[in-house]
Amino acid sequence: MSQRIPVVEKILSANDRLAAENQSSLDAANVFAINMMASPGAGKTSLIEQTLKGLEGHLRIAMINGDIATSFDADRAQAAGATAIQINTGGDCHLDAVMVQSALSQLDLGILDLLVIENVGNLVCPADFKLGTHKSVLVASIPEGDDKPYKYPGMYRGVNAVVINKIDLLPYVPFRMDFFKKGIEVLNPGVTQFELSCRTGEGLAGWLAWLEGQVKEFKGIHAK
């Protein structure tokens, strides 16, 4: 006999469950974590380097870097003074909660305030896979063009902050900031936004203040 069984379950529910476990480990250790996503070359590692420099002495920071191959980015973070763990996804287009779980086990969470996870450069896949971070940040950049919110709505909808990097290139590249922002407005109303340049340092102070505020607020809530 044939019969229909209703299921109604999110396809990536197993990853969601593991992500929740990761978040519990982070909460227990009182470590605030962000998932940094962007297209290739938008400036994720540059922003992490600037963040390490800018918050040195304020926060104890580690980074997890996901790349299809190479450890260049983890090496850069290490050179900038952070503990950095490299995950080579071996061809996968995104990090998932399992990879992050194994990276977490290699970190001494007890001596950290902030964990920054640099996801694989990609505007599609990382949006679907929760990692267990408390906030997610999308790094957009001027040379990518102003139509990205329209082409990658799933990515723009899910994030807690949008950093618009490489504003030093605005004089050289056509980029309609109002068109770009209008797309974001519908997708993610009121989302926190920063316009900055990792090259010149312009606008970085606002980002650093926000991030430090987020960590402090979290630590207030989860203080031991």
Binding site: M1, S2, Q3, R4, V7, V8, E9, K10, I11, D128
Partner: peptide
């Protein structure tokens, strides 16, 4: 437009 689900399955004995 944001669904990403397995809604149902059909089964036989």
């Amino acid at each position: 437009g944001e669904e990403f689900q397995l809604e149902a399955i059909d089964v036989e004995d």
